[in-house]
Amino acid sequence: MTFVIGRFIPVDPVLAIVGDHATQSTYEKTRLSIGLDRPIPEQYLIYLNKLIHGDLGTSVITSQPVLTDLLHFFPATLELATVATVLGVIVGVPAGVLAGATRGRWPDQIVRVVGLFGYSMPVFWMGLVGLFVFYGKLNWTAGPGRIDVGYEDVVDPKTGILLLDSALAGEWDAFRSAAAHLVLPSIILGYLSLAYIARMTRSFTIGQLSQEYATTALLKGRSFWGMVWRHAFPNILVPLVTVIGLSYATLLEGAVLTETVFAWPGLGLYITQSLFNADMNAVLGGTIVVGAVFIGINLLSDVLYRIIDPRLRLQ
């Protein structure tokens, strides 16, 4: 674990220094006092030492510790990415299996086109058009932001995940408001992860169906779909966990544009705004959290392998 962390940190001091040049004189004196005049290896060691002690520095903009900021912004992204991934899995996995099993016929073609659209759509544009149609014209969903202004401080933030908090507190009006704000961005992000998950599931399915055991099952009298779901699907699960984990991690990190369009106060928005304000401590902290989340999710899917695949349990 430390090895992996050591691998992704060395980018950061470089960024911090380049960022400093970008901001010029105002910050330069303060930065000097923080220790930017020392040699880079020394800075790096100091930074590493602080990091180990959980100190990510102070944000120049909010003048709060970066860690506090991150704890404030991260739940919003977590909520959005989780709902989106759940949507992507619920639709994407069956669609992918269907496409793989009917390779070359019309269900496959439909899934392919839907996937291609998802791959080619600029998220920020889809968000704007979605807002225009469903909020502006039809008024089916709520507008940007996480919750209506009136409900903002109604619920005591226990987890920071508004749906959970309001449900726990029994504030159902606030729950509805939060859900109405969540629908559009999560469907749009869910569509992206759907496109990816469906495409990968399709190729895994095709790979499994060409194996000899699939033919054997059919020859023994299994119905085609019975074979697909009972024989092939369990074998698809293992690589699928990696894919879903990867897509989840990407959404947690990469929701930058969606969060900008929907004014969603999450990690992506925090990193972007800090970047524009040359708030390098915040950017570094955010990036480290992003990397840590990435690694954490990879570890989690390694653990899940062992639960799903009995062959790995024996070793």
């Binding site: 060395p10 990469g254 990193i271 972007t272 992003v290 990435f294």
Partner: peptide
């Protein structure tokens, strides 16, 4: 390959954002 891994460990948009913001 380790250098390559470091770059791969970040989501490309966040990294591109960071570079673009740093370069102007």
């Amino acid at each position: 390959m380790r250098i390559t891994d470091i770059f791969l460990a970040f989501p490309s948009l966040v990294l591109a954002l960071a570079f673009a913001a740093a370069l102007g």
